[in-house]
Structure formats: C-alpha cells, structure tokens
C-alpha cells in the first residue's frame, strides 16, 4: 500500500511541476475545498429568501449581490459547486469504472461478447444525451440522482470504447505474451498487467470529462430537467441570471464564471496528468 501512496505523490508532484498543471491543481483544489466546507464558508443560507434585499449589486454584506428573491449569490455559487461535484464525480467515476470493466471484457473476452458490447455501446451513443435525459426525467422526475444516472449511462460507452481499444492493443503485445508464458492467469493479466496500462488513459479522459458533465448538469438544470429549485446549482443560477440580465448582471456572472473556471481547472489537470501517467515521459522521478 505504501507503494501506491508514493505513486500518487509522484503523480501530484509531476503535475505541479508543469505551470498549467499547477494552476489546474489550485483551481480543482479550491473547488473541492469549497465544496467540502461549503457549510462553513457560506455567509448566508443559500435558499433563505429576503425580499427586502432583492437584486442588489456586490457589497460587503453580499459579495456577489443577491437574486430576485434576495438570496445571497455568493452562498449559492459555493453551494452550487457542491451540487456540481455531487453530480460530476459519481457520474464520471461510475461511468469510468463500468466502462473500464466492460471495455476490458470486450477486448479480452470472446468475439461474440465483444460484438454484443459494441452493439450496446453504439445503441446508447446513438441517443442524444438531452433526449435521453428528457425521456428519463419524464419517467422518474427531475432530481440529482436522475442527472447522475443519465450522465453515467451516456458516458459509459466512451470509456468502454477506449478501454477496449487499449485492451486489444495490449493483448497482442509481447509483454503480455511474456506474462502468459510465466503462467499468469487471466485475472492476473487483466488486473495486474493491463489495468495499470489502461487506467492512466482513462483518468485523463475522466479529468477532461468532469467539466463536460458540470456543463451538462448546468444545462439540464437550466432547462428545468436537473436539480429541483430551490437547490442552488450553477445552471439554475445561470437561468435566473439570464431572465434578469437587464436588472442585474451579477447572477449570470455568478453562474457562468464558475463553470468556465472549473472547466479550465479540470482541463489543465487532465492535460498535465496525461504527461505524468506515461512513465516514459516522467523526468527522473
């Protein structure tokens, strides 16, 4: 175990050496920190209405002003970040885990299973995400879990396909033949030898995918298909801000800026992670 911990340290140090990677780490770190400690950071209850203070500009008491119901925008942005991660992290990691497993099975297993899984992936991918979301929401109603489910289901094929391609390439590589000639079982080949070769690529993909999911959640919430009001989400903020953009620009900024910043942060992280996960590119340690 101490081995994998030092591995993680090497990766983080590697990312931080790259200026963009460093920025990515700082941004993502800040988002995660503010999401975890949201309850202590926010100056106001994000859903508490205060009609007397509606639609104010920034001030010392309301850093980003207030909305049409007098709710503190800053508090809603911070809590919205929490909602965004609550959707993005389980959806992305869930999709990655399932896609990885199915993709490796497709790539290493018998041909018929491969064909079946590919057909399944293609079928899922042929639905536009928003259409799929509409259908699911119509069936089970809008909620945070629905968003997670929809996002996860629609992104499994992406991870699955990448994992499959990697597995197919590795399967015919000489070092896997060498492992087999040393008596390694299928489980050992997949788990010990192929997995570490595939996980890096998928981790990069996942880091790049998180902003897409955050934007998707915002989009769904914007359309009223995401989290239910009054739960603050960046999409919901954007929606209110859009309607009230003539009265106060602060809502649009409060909803839009975090999405942009989060997108940049995760993309920087993903880009520099890509360089680090390939040990050949790692500069001595």
């Amino acid at each position: 175990m101490e081995k994998s911990q030092s591995e993680i340290r090497i990766i983080i140090v590697g990312i931080a050496k790259n200026p963009l990677g460093f920025m990515g780490l700082v941004i993502v770190g800040a988002i995660v920190f503010s999401a975890i400690f949201a309850a202590w950071i926010v100056p106001y209850d994000p859903i508490e209405m205060n009609i007397r203070d509606r639609m104010q500009g920034p001030s010392w008491s309301h850093l980003l002003g207030t909305d049409q119901l007098g709710r503190d925008t800053f508090s809603r942005v911070i809590t919205g970040g929490q909602v965004a991660l609550k959707v993005a992290l389980p959806a992305v990691f869930g999709a990655m885990a399932i896609g990885l497993t199915l993709g490796m099975v497709a790539g290493y297993g018998p041909k018929w299973l491969d064909n079946f899984l590919m057909l399944l992936f293609d079928t899922i991918r042929s639905f536009p995400t928003v259409m799929f979301a509409l259908a699911v929401v119509a069936l089970v109603g809008p909620s945070l879990q629905t968003v997670v489910l929809v996002v996860m289901a629609t992104s499994i094929p992406t991870y699955g396909r990448v994992a499959r391609t990697q597995t197919l390439t590795l399967r015919n590589s000489e070092f896997i033949l060498a492992e087999r000639s040393m008596g390694a079982s299928m489980a050992r080949i997949l788990g010990v030898h192929m997995l570490p070769n595939i996980i890096g690529v998928l981790a990069v993909l996942a880091a790049m995918d998180i902003p897409t999911v955050i934007a998707l959640e915002a989009g769904l919430s914007f359309l009223g298909l995401g989290v239910k009001p009054p739960t603050p989400s960046w999409g919901a903020l954007l929606k209110d801000g859009y309607a009230l953009v003539r009265q106060t620009p602060w809502l649009v900024i409060g909803g839009g800026l975090p999405i942009i910043v989060a997108t940049l942060g995760f993309t920087f992280l993903g880009e520099s992670l890509r360089d680090v996960v390939d040990p050949k590119l790692r500069k001595n340690q």
């Binding site: 070092f175 060498a178 030898h193 070769n197």
Partner: peptide, 8 residues
Amino acid sequence: MQTHNPVL
C-alpha cells in the same frame, strides 16, 4: 525492449 510491462 518489448518483454516488460512499461508501467510497472
């Protein structure tokens, strides 16, 4: 050059 796992 080909017989070892590159990431372990």
